[in-house]
Design a binder for these strands. Structure first.
Lengths: 194, 194
DNA sequence: AAAAATATAGACAGGTCTGTCTAGTAGCGA
DNA sequence: TCGCTACTAGACAGACCTGTCTATATTTTT
């Protein structure tokens, strides 16, 4: 087999088009054409456009966590892990290749919470918030949930900047922003030899 | 005259529908029906849907600055003004009535920078960043541009949270987040009796 | 090699979209 | 009362949308 299986080619094409142009702006016919897959084949693998959108978001969610795990696994200290994550956010969000957050965009285009796109987006953000809370707790933050929420604002602000400003935006500040927020909760309260 | 002029009624209806459902999801026919205005009247006032979107965003931008000016005019000290702005962001973004940022959504739905919706959104965000920079400078921040960028991330993170999570989200943290960021740049460096 | 599953190409239905056209109505100043 | 302007109501064109159908070809499995 010289080419990937149809399902993978569809998802790959859908990912490129959805992340770049949005969900409503991209029609099934465009995905068909760009992927070179027959329409019936697409509808066999994904019963509807919403199902394709959901599959794309699930795939993107999995990729996000692989990215996060790749970053955190390179460090031991939770505080350093948090800083490394936001250095990664800074680098990625300010790069020209970044098109913003697919989950945020899904929530924007599908405001109905029952829509699978919004539901997956909400779940994703809840999971990110939870992970940041765990890391904040492990880093002995004075208020772990509060710090996680602070950091979450910075992260989503960076993704927003990527979409609105394009490459070279102030998302590059996310690392510094996170350091200031982390320091505010760990410097004073952390007496190593207490 | 018992009713507002047609142009105002169109803009009012468009504002409600665009902010709630998005731009592509709302058709001209829906705006016609909801506003009770004839289609030809709409196209007389706004030559195209894009022009209507642009007019809506301009109106929203003006309202945003009225809101900001209302907050800042109640305080004299720039640092206090910044804190008050983010208390306002916290309150608004976490309220159930908040549907997120119309400019962010415009950039999400119209990725092309030449699209009037994206262009106005970009300009708006640049203006906000500039205003935050001015206030940071006036507040004697160690790095005014850096602080403004930090705060910008927090603000856009709050709007994002509003859309994804709905009411009662972690955007309510924006005031505390901003205070931590402002303090990190003004506490140590500010010696009143130097 | 036969059979079964899978993919292709494209027509098609029914709906929605933006923007235009026509014809008629209401209000208002001269 | 006349004439001008603004608004209304709805048909309409042409394009695009999702999802289905048919008929054929290709691949895989038995």
């Amino acid at each position: 087999m010289t080419q990937p299986a149809p399902r993978e080619r569809i998802l790959q094409t859908a990912a490129a088009l959805f992340s770049k142009h949005g969900y409503r702006a991209v029609g099934i016919d465009t995905i068909i054409r760009e992927s070179g897959i027959a329409k019936m084949t697409l509808y066999k693998h994904f019963p509807s456009k919403d199902a394709l959108i959901a599959a794309y978001l699930e795939q993107t969610n999995a990729g996000f966590w692989r990215w996060i795990d790749g970053i955190t696994s390179a460090h031991d200290d939770p505080k350093t892990q948090l800083e490394a994550i936001f250095d990664g956010v800074a680098k990625l969000s300010s790069s020209p290749a970044c098109l913003g957050c697919s989950f945020t965009h899904a929530a924007a285009e599908f405001p109905d919470f029952d829509h699978p796109g919004h539901a997956i987006a909400l779940l994703h953000k809840q999971q990110v918030l939870e992970r940041l809370t765990q890391l904040s707790r492990a880093a002995h933050a004075a208020d772990p949930l509060g710090l996680a929420q602070d950091l979450m604002l910075a992260m989503d602000g960076a993704w927003s900047a990527a979409r609105v400003f394009g490459g070279g935006n102030h998302g590059s500040r996310a690392g510094a922003t996170a350091r200031a927020l982390i320091a505010a909760q760990t410097k004073a309260t952390n007496s190593p030899a207490a």
